[in-house]
Amino acid sequence: MNMSILAVLVIAFLAGVEGVVDEWEFHQPIIACTLVGLAVGHPLSGVALGASLQLVTLGWMNIGTAVAPDPALAAVVAAWWISGPAHLPVAAGVILALPLAWVGQALTRLLRQLIVPLVAQADVAAAQGDLHRISRLHLYSAALQGIRVVIPTALLLLIPAAWLQHAYQALPTSVQGGLRVAAGMLVVVSFAIVINMMASRQLWPFFFLGFALATDQHLSLIALGMIGVALACVYVYVWPTHGSGPHDQQGGGSSADDEDDLDRELDDL
């Protein structure tokens, strides 16, 4: 058990770095929960939570200066509660992840302020021409991002599994059922965030086309993807002949105003 706790903390570190760096995507629930599941020896429950939680978080993105809710802390700790000794159901994990994501977001914002003196040190190092020190300071910041998730994870791992089980079993069955319903319904918020980011008047028809085709259960997700790409190719190819120039009414986010609006919205998350 001690080894798996150590492994969970290592995963928390990786997820914490990635939550800000956004490169290898270890903080995405489908990866983080799977890794935690593997670490505690129940990979399948980790994958099940990761996949369900991924659908809830797929619209959370750091754009411009905005900080989205942080899936890193949420995914690692929820996966511990599902795959670890507490063995809570997947739906409970999805719901519990939400307040954790909010805490993670607050910690990310806080660290972006706390790190300012460290960046000021880099200015001093640059003035002295000390390039190695600049590199070191940057690596320290990366480590701080990891620690940002490791510490709260370690604290939450201290909660005895029995407490969590008792708390869950104390819930009335109608509430437990409600949580299951919520876990299936919460995905619409993420879909809405992504749609809101890209939607413009000329793009809405494609949304309804996708919706209508997907109600035919014979079409697989890959087939739907191919239809989408084909439609995009045809449209973009034909587009320049549609009277007004290509710069006038682009899809979302291309004009500076749109981007600022979006920043503000996402900042308020």
């Binding site: 995905v187 749609i195 890209m198 413009s200 085709l213 439609l231 995009a232 899809g251």
Partner: peptide, 28 residues
């Protein structure tokens, strides 16, 4: 304008697939 075209194309695929995900992945 090549990048704008690419973004427009990606946004179309994005909107289309989001439309497809709504009935497939929401359980109500």
């Amino acid at each position: 304008g090549i990048l704008q075209k690419l973004t427009l194309g990606a946004s179309i695929v994005g909107m289309f697939v989001m439309g497809a995900l709504v009935p497939r992945w929401t359980r109500v």
